[in-house]
Design a protein around this nucleic acid. Structure first.
Lengths: 272, 272
DNA sequence: CGATGCCTTGAGGACCCTCAAAGCAGGTGG
DNA sequence: CCACCTGCTTTGAGGGTCCTCAAGGCATCG
C-alpha cells in the first residue's frame, strides 16, 4: 500500500499524492546526498577525523506538504534527519483520535520510536515541503562500531529526545493553559533562532488545532492565549505570523500553574 | 555531598542516611555481581553466544526506601538496571515542584536521560528497598562494539523508553481523569504480572500523591477514582493493596476522554 | 498515647472545554 | 475576474470536570 523501500543507490523523488500538480522538477536540484560528516553536523554531533573520512553517502528525500513520511505499523527500516522544513509526529488511537507528539525541524531525528518494536509506532507528516536525510538503520547503526565515539553520539541523540518528551510531560502534568502556550512560543522562538530563521519573527508551520493537540488544549484556548499575549504586548499575531516582543515575559510564565497538580503543597519532604 | 563513585571492583553497600537503623547485614548476601548475560536477561534482550561468553561483571548496589540513586545536575557516570524493588524518577522545577516521570521496576533501565547532557537530568528515588545493577556507561557502551547485535539492543531499550513516555503524553493530553487512573491500574497489573508477583492482587509501592503527580491529577481525584472503581466492582482497594476483579473494564475505560482535547471533531483529514 | 503521614469524603469554585456564529484567506471553477 | 467553497481563526456564552480547601478516620512509630 505504501512502499518506502528505496532501492539502494538511486535517486527517488517521494511524490505520492501530488495534491497540487507541481512536477518534481519544480524543486531545485539542491544537493541530494549527504556524507556522514554532513549528518553529524546536522545533528550537532562533533565529528572526529575518522567520521570525516567515511565515504558512505546518505540519500536525501523530499516530501510535499501533507505527505506522510511513515505510518504507524509500517515495518521499521530507517531513521530520518530533517534538513529542511517542518513536520509533525502523531499517534492515532483506536478511536481515530490524533495526538501530536512533536514538531521536528532542522537537525531533529525522527523514527527512533520504531527501533524497539521494529515497527513505526507513530506517524510523521510534513507540515511544509521538506527535505530529509534517509538513514537505513542497519547501515547507520553499523557505522557506530567503526567510528570511535559515534555510538555514544547516537545514544546522545536518543537521550536528547527523551529529555524533550520529559519536558512535554512536565508541561502537560503541572502547568496551566496560558503558561503552556507561552512556553511553546518561547520554544519555537528559540528553535527558529538556532536554525537561523530569526527567533523574533517567524511563521508557525502548524495550525491552532495542532498546537492544541500538542499542548493538551482545545484550539480555542490556544487562540485565546495568543490574543491575550497580544493585548499584553508580549507578541504580535497575525494568523500564523508571530513577532516576539518580550521573550522574557513568555518564558517567565512557566510558573502560574493551576492545572492537573497540587499547587504549592508538600513540595519536598526528605531532607537530602 | 553525595559521591556515587564506586571504586572499580569492590562491594559497596549504598547505605547513606540509614533512616531506620537496620544494619547492612540485615540484607541477605544475595548475589552481588551480574554477568552481561544476566543483564541482558533482565532487560529482555536476546543473548547471543558472544554475550554469554563475556566475562566482565557488573556490580549490584542496594538502596533503602527513600534514598536517592542520583540527583539532578550530578555528573552522569552510569546507567542502572532495576533488579528488585520499585523506584520513582522525578524532575524538580525551580519552584520546587515535583513531577514524577516514571515508576521503574524490575527490568527497567534508568539514567538514560543523563547521556546527552552528561548530567543526570532527573532524580531517581527508591520507593522500596531495592537492588540495582550498576553499569558504568563507558564500559557498557564499549561492549556494544564487541558483541554483535548488542548495540542495536541498547538502541531498542532506549527506544522502548521513548515509547513509554509517548503513551504517557497521550494519556495526559487526551484522556479524562478516571480513564487515566484506570489505565494506570491496568498497567501496574500487567507489570506485576510480567514480574511474576501476581497481576490480580498486588501492593502499590507509591502514594496517592505520587500517582497523581504521574497522571497529572490531584491526590483527591485519584482517591475518588479508586473509590468509584471499587463501588463499580472493578477492583478492591484497601490502602495500597489492590485486587483487580475486572481488568477488561479498566482497560476499556481508555476511551471516555473529556479532558484537554477536542472530543470527536476533525479526526483525520487527508485520505492516505 | 500523642504525633505524623496517608487516605477518604464532602462542598464550592476556577479553569478550560463545548457549542455556536462570524470574519478572512486561499483555491477552484465558471 | 469574481462568486463560491473550504479550512483556519477569532470571540462569546454556558456548563462540566477537576482542583482547592477542609475535616475526620486509620495506620505506623517514637
Amino acid at each position: 500500500m505504501f512502499s518506502t523501500s528505496i532501492p539502494a543507490k538511486q535517486i527517488v523523488y517521494q511524490l505520492k499524492e501530488p495534491q497540487s500538480s507541481v512536477p518534481a522538477a519544480a524543486f531545485p536540484a539542491y544537493k541530494l546526498w549527504s556524507s556522514l560528516k554532513d549528518v553529524c553536523d546536522l545533528l550537532r554531533i562533533a565529528a572526529t577525523p575518522s567520521i570525516e573520512q567515511e565515504t558512505l553517502q546518505f540519500q536525501h528525500v523530499r516530501y510535499r506538504r501533507g505527505q506522510r513520511i511513515y505510518t504507524m505499523g509500517q515495518p521499521f527500516k530507517a531513521l530520518y534527519v530533517v534538513r529542511d522544513g517542518a513536520l509533525k509526529t502523531v499517534v492515532v488511537d483506536d478511536a481515530g483520535q490524533e495526538q501530536i507528539l512533536s514538531f521536528p525541524m532542522r537537525g531533529d531525528m525522527i523514527g527512533i520510536d520504531g527501533i524497539f518494536p521494529r515497527l513505526y509506532s507513530s506517524e510523521a507528516i510534513a507540515l511544509s515541503d521538506c527535505e530529509l536525510v534517509y538513514l537505513p538503520f542497519k547501515q547507520f547503526a553499523a557505522l557506530g562500531k567503526s567510528h570511535l565515539g559515534l555510538d555514544s553520539a547516537i545514544y546522545s541523540v536518543m537521550s536528547e529526545d527523551l529529555l524533550r518528551e520529559q519536558s512535554v510531560i512536565r508541561m502537560l502534568g503541572a502547568i496551566g493553559a496560558e503558561a503552556r502556550v507561552a512556553q511553546f512560543l518561547a520554544w519555537m522562538s528559540k528553535r527558529f533562532d538556532e536554525i537561523g530563521q530569526g527567533g523574533a519573527a517567524f511563521s508557525l508551520p502548524m495550525s491552532r488545532i495542532e498546537i492544541g493537540s500538542y499542548l493538551g488544549l482545545s484550539l480555542e484556548t490556544v487562540s485565546r492565549a495568543f490574543s491575550h499575549f497580544k493585548k499584553a504586548g508580549f507578541i504580535s499575531v497575525d494568523r500564523r505570523t508571530i513577532d516576539i516582543h518580550d521573550w522574557q515575559a513568555l518564558a517567565g510564565l512557566r510558573h502560574a500553574a493551576p492545572a492537573g497538580s497540587q499547587k504549592q503543597r508538600d513540595a519536598r519532604k526528605r531532607s537530602a
